[in-house]
Simulated scan of single mutants.
Amino acid sequence: MIPFVNLGGKRALITSGTRGAGAATVALFQELGARVLTSARSNPDKLSDEQFFAADLTRPEGCIGLAAAVRERLGGVDIIVHMLGGSSAPAGGYEALSDQEWRQELDLNLMPAIRLDRELVPAMEARGSGVVIHVTSIQRELPLPEATTAYAAAKAALSTYSKSLSKQVSPKGVRVVRVSPGWIETEASVDLARRLASEHGVDVEQGKQMIMDSLGGIPIGRPSRPEEVANLIAFLASDRAGTITGTEYVIDGGTVPTA
């Protein structure tokens, strides 16, 4: 049976594809027939040289090197999925954020997408086809002032940049779409739940509930799973979504309280 979504013959770059939702997206794209190159600073799963390129994408030279690897190993790219993101900023609100911490958040959550698009999207335009997916976050509209101000601002900038890019390149056949996850139950987030549980003398499920409570609650009662985020990305990258561009798809279990 032919799958509903088929990525056979597509060449895809997926950043940060060695864990969490990134790893789930790499696995699904490969299952659906795509040739995938992914990147991270290290290769914990020992992916082959054909599949993996080690790069620090917070630095310009890392993005340039990855773009060169895309051209060399894949011969170009049909789909770019910008999964890279995260935060190492301290808690404490705006006063705790130095210039360096602001730069780190922007260099991780915004600049890699801008640099890689600048390297790779022109060839998509010249060919008249391609898909760019920017993974943002519900934090861009639901920031937690104590902990995620800089991360949320960087993701908001990514969303605005993505919308502007879509207006420029969609008339040339290149679709640009945003995916905005809420809390995803990855190994890292479960580790956070364990730490919270240990600190407060409760079990891990109660630790997860503490995270959900900090977000104002998740109506479906659980976070998204990595494979669920991957499913959405794969559909949006496929020809089934051929007229979808310039918009943002939220996958958060209903966390954001407004439409």
Rank of each mutant, 00 (worst) to 15 (best):
A152G: 05
V121I: 10
F4L: 15
I218H: 01
A188M: 02
V204L: 14
A96I: 04
I220W: 02
T247M: 14
E101M: 09
S129G: 05
G242S: 12
G76E: 12
E50H: 13
E205R: 10
E248T: 09
K167C: 12
S189T: 15
T136M: 00
G246I: 08
E205C: 04
I218R: 04
V169E: 06
V36H: 00
I80H: 05
L32D: 03
L110Y: 01
M1E: 11
G75R: 03
R175M: 09
A21G: 13
V169F: 05
L158T: 14
G20P: 15
P145T: 11
V256G: 06
A150S: 10
R222W: 00
I64M: 13
L144S: 14
V135E: 03
Q168K: 15
T258S: 12
L57P: 11
V121F: 04
M124L: 07
E228K: 09
G217L: 08
V204R: 14
P181A: 03
G92K: 10
S166W: 13
V169Q: 08
N6M: 09
D107G: 01
A234N: 04
A24V: 07
G217S: 04
S170F: 06
Q206F: 00
A69Q: 11
I233K: 08
V169A: 03
G65Y: 00
R240K: 13
A23Q: 08
I211T: 09
F4I: 14
I184H: 07
S170Y: 07
G93C: 02
F52R: 15
L120W: 01
P44H: 10
A188S: 02
H82R: 05
L66G: 13
P257M: 08
K10H: 05
S189R: 15
L158D: 11
S166M: 13
L97G: 02
P171S: 00
I218S: 01
D239L: 09
K163S: 09
I133P: 11
F53L: 12
E227T: 10
G76H: 12
N43G: 14
A89K: 12
L165I: 05
A126G: 11
L84Y: 09
S129W: 03
P226Q: 05
V190T: 15
S159Y: 04
E95C: 08
V256D: 04
G85A: 01
D45N: 15
G93S: 06
R41I: 02
A55T: 05
T243I: 14
V204W: 12
E50P: 13
T186L: 06
E141H: 06
C63F: 01
S48V: 09
E105G: 03
